[in-house]
Computed example of a mutant assay.
Amino acid sequence: MWEKFIKNKYSVLLLIVYVIALYVILNKVVVPFVLNMTGSEFFTGDSSEGGEAAQVHNERTAMALLQCNGFVRDKYDEDTVLVFDDKAHQSWDIGFGRFLIKSRVMVTEPGEAAVRQQYVCELKHTGGDLADHDNWKLTGLSVTDVAATQ
């Protein structure tokens, strides 16, 4: 009966070697990698800083908006005039000190027409005073033109 399944006398030995190799790779490579990833700062944090699925407007998101405006300001020269539209912003507290801010800014380069731009900013509060710019880490920023004014 076994002769039908075993076509080569080394087939069983190779099967055993493959199973052992897969077991070793799983335990020495895959599991440590997964444990390392789940233990990273992306998956951990203070449970009291849990996020919200809906838009949030509170003191923490207001500070995140101010910090995001600072990061947007850092993208431009000192001669550029920026007017932020802070009343029409959208903000989300996505948990563990991370915030997502969407807002608009009017950008006027010297000698050029004003351009309205929309930006989306992802920030992480690293701890400490909310008002301190050094306690925030920019994890993503996208700025796009919306419309030009004459």
Results as ranks from 00 to 15, higher is better:
residue 121 C to G: 06
residue 32 P to A: 03
residue 110 P to V: 02
residue 29 V to I: 15
residue 137 K to H: 08
residue 82 L to P: 08
residue 120 V to F: 03
residue 92 W to G: 00
residue 65 L to D: 01
residue 58 N to P: 12
residue 121 C to R: 07
residue 137 K to F: 05
residue 87 K to A: 10
residue 38 T to F: 04
residue 72 V to T: 03
residue 74 D to A: 10
residue 128 G to L: 01
residue 108 T to R: 13
residue 107 V to I: 07
residue 32 P to V: 02
residue 127 G to T: 02
residue 70 G to A: 09
residue 29 V to R: 12
residue 115 V to E: 13
residue 139 T to G: 05
residue 43 F to W: 05
residue 88 A to N: 13
residue 126 T to M: 14
residue 30 V to H: 07
residue 30 V to E: 13
residue 101 I to E: 01
residue 130 L to F: 10
residue 86 D to I: 04
residue 74 D to E: 13
residue 136 W to C: 04
residue 72 V to Y: 05
residue 39 G to R: 02
residue 144 T to Q: 15
residue 86 D to T: 14
residue 85 D to G: 02
residue 105 V to H: 06
residue 52 E to S: 15
residue 82 L to C: 05
residue 108 T to V: 01
residue 111 G to A: 13
residue 105 V to D: 08
residue 100 L to N: 11
residue 69 N to P: 03
residue 82 L to W: 08
residue 88 A to P: 00
residue 127 G to I: 04
residue 141 L to R: 04
residue 49 E to Q: 15
residue 63 M to R: 14
residue 102 K to D: 07
residue 112 E to F: 04
residue 116 R to E: 14
residue 60 R to H: 10
residue 47 S to I: 14
residue 94 I to Y: 01
residue 73 R to M: 08
residue 133 H to S: 11
residue 43 F to P: 00
residue 144 T to I: 10
residue 143 V to T: 05
residue 136 W to S: 04
residue 65 L to G: 00
residue 53 A to K: 15
residue 119 Y to F: 13
residue 108 T to E: 12
residue 44 T to L: 08
residue 135 N to C: 06
residue 63 M to P: 06
residue 72 V to A: 05
residue 111 G to K: 13
residue 31 V to E: 10
residue 101 I to G: 02
residue 116 R to V: 12
residue 55 Q to F: 03
residue 68 C to V: 04
residue 44 T to C: 02
residue 37 M to K: 14
residue 61 T to N: 12
residue 145 D to N: 12
residue 66 L to P: 01
residue 61 T to H: 09
residue 59 E to K: 11
residue 39 G to K: 02
residue 99 F to V: 00
residue 133 H to Q: 10
residue 63 M to H: 15
residue 134 D to V: 01
residue 114 A to T: 11
residue 145 D to M: 07
residue 91 S to V: 03
residue 75 K to D: 05
residue 49 E to K: 15
